[in-house]
């Protein structure tokens, strides 16, 4: 008979001097970064502001993809490694719709309509593919050891890449696509703001707010949170666990679809292995913010976007981008392993 008390007390253990030293060091590092950023901001405010703008645009994309990782992880503790490649497929699909079908290469009513249509189709298709992947590949592994679905995800990632590499998709070499805005933009003072960045943020922010609203305020969101904590208990409440998980995959896929179109419109290239790099950055963003935490993924996405943009423009240069991103991740994991907004994992009895 188990006599263990299950109540997880919130009492924090007394901090050891070593831990205090470590967190002091961590704070020092953060302070150093902040001082550096402020210094650059004062030295050349105009360049700094444009880098922030560009970084926010990238960050919005990272945030969209990161949400797909974090939501799926939150509900079934699966790191869906194929998510980045799903995003890649969505990018190519958007390109096919916008450019091959509607020949979008400049701004206009027709172009806006075509891009909007591409956004909807891309979101729907990515959601559908993600749901199918869950239904076919992950569902039957739900009670299997955690490594099994993880390897399945890696396998799906290769399958998506193979599909993306077909000639009718993006092919083996990077492919250029025309975009609606190109490099056009406007100036606020001396700061250049590209139209694409505005578009990306204008579409991303409502989507992010919608996700938070769905998870926190709706019935489906309530079911999601219950399933995330205890599937059997959720079933005993009358919650359809399978349907809830399907819904989460649909949401995550939809966001990857939106990110695909926005990436295409802002960068104008596609490549079959695009998903690996962006997926990795987005996954890092999700971990940085605290995996399983929606706001954390958004925060992590914007943070990485802005940080790597600052690095590219002012610090070490673009070739060091990934190094900086992962240094930040490693440092954060050392000092705050649960992520910025994540809650510490408590062992359940």
């Amino acid at each position: 008979m188990t006599q263990t008390a299950i109540a997880a007390s919130e009492v924090k253990p007394r901090r050891l001097p070593r831990e205090t030293a470590v967190s002091a060091l961590g704070l020092l590092l953060v302070a150093a970064v902040v001082v550096w950023v402020l210094y650059e901001a004062i030295k050349s405010p105009q360049e700094f502001a444009s880098l922030i703008v560009a970084g926010a645009g990238n960050g919005a994309l990272y945030a969209l993809i990161a949400l797909g990782y974090t939501m799926v992880y939150g509900i079934i503790e699966l790191i869906n490694f194929s998510h980045g490649d799903l995003f890649m497929l969505a990018t190519v699909l958007s390109g096919i719709i916008c450019v091959s079908l509607f020949n979008v290469d400049s701004f206009g009513f027709g172009a806006v309509g075509a891009v909007a249509l591409a956004l909807l189709i891309s979101m729907a298709a990515a959601a559908l593919v993600n749901v199918a992947a869950e239904r076919v590949a992950y569902r039957r592994l739900r009670r299997a050891p955690k490594l099994a679905p993880l390897i399945t995800a890696v396998g799906l990632s290769f399958m998506y890449q193979w599909f993306g590499q077909r000639q009718f998709m993006t092919g083996s070499a990077p492919k250029q696509w025309s975009t609606m805005f190109g490099d056009d933009g406007f100036n606020i003072g001396d700061v250049r703001v590209p139209y694409t960045t505005v578009t990306v943020i204008a579409i991303t922010i409502p989507l992010l707010l919608l996700m938070v609203y769905i998870v926190q305020r709706t019935r489906a969101g309530k079911a999601m949170r219950a399933v995330a904590q205890d599937q059997d208990a959720a079933r005993l409440m009358g919650i359809d666990v399978d349907r809830t998980i399907t819904f989460v995959f649909a949401l995550g896929g939809g966001l990857a679809g939106a990110a695909g179109l926005l990436y295409l419109q802002s960068v104008g290239t596609s490549n079959y292995n695009l998903g690996f790099r962006l997926g990795l950055i987005a996954f890092t963003a999700a971990v940085l913010g605290g995996i399983g935490n929606l706001q954390g993924a958004v925060l992590g996405g914007f943070l990485l976007g802005i940080l790597s943009s600052l690095n590219d423009g002012m610090l070490l240069g673009q070739q060091w981008s990934m190094t900086v991103v992962f240094t930040v991740l490693i440092l954060l994991m050392v000092f705050k392993p649960e992520g910025i907004l994540g809650s510490p994992t408590t062992e359940k009895v």
């Binding site: 299950i6 997880a8 019935r219 309530k222 079911a223 949170r225 219950a226 904590q229 205890d230 059997d232 208990a233 959720a234 005993l236 409440m237 009358g238 919650i239 809650s343 359940k348």
Partner: peptide, 19 residues
């Protein structure tokens, strides 16, 4: 017991009436 530990008592009770 299998209560939902990260939710409040009220949210737990509301989930009991989910249907």
């Amino acid at each position: 017991r299998r209560i939902f530990p990260k939710m409040t008592v009220e949210e737990n009770l509301e989930l009991g009436a989910f249907l």
